[in-house]
């Protein structure tokens, strides 16, 4: 399965915008653990996933060419 990854803020410093090709990931829970294993810095951070611009609130299946956004909280003012 091909996924497009876009990330923001600090997360974009270690996860660049990219296409990934993964075979054994079929849902967002698995994607989270894939991302946290591939990018260990992510595991200790607060972030929210969105698929095709919709924020994920519970495990959801993925399909080819889904667009994954990884968003951290900002507090500056």
């Amino acid at each position: 399965m091909k996924l497009e990854i876009i990330s923001f803020g600090k997360i974009s410093e270690f996860i660049r915008q990219q296409q990934i090709e993964i075979s054994d990931v079929i849902n967002t829970d698995q994607l989270k653990s894939y991302l946290e294993t591939s990018f260990p810095q992510l595991a200790g951070m607060k972030y929210k996933l969105a698929i095709n611009q919709n924020v994920i609130q519970s495990n959801q299946s993925l399909k080819n060419e889904d667009k994954v956004a990884i968003m951290p909280p900002f507090s500056g003012g």
């Binding site: 600090k10 951070m45 607060k46 924020v55 609130q57 951290p72 909280p73 900002f74 507090s75 500056g76």
Partner: peptide, 20 residues
């Protein structure tokens, strides 16, 4: 609904530490 719990102090830097 986006971020259920607050990051701990120091987990996310602010303008004073990070620049803007």
């Amino acid at each position: 609904d986006l971020f259920p719990i607050s990051p701990l102090p120091g987990e996310v830097s602010n303008c004073a530490e990070n620049g803007v």
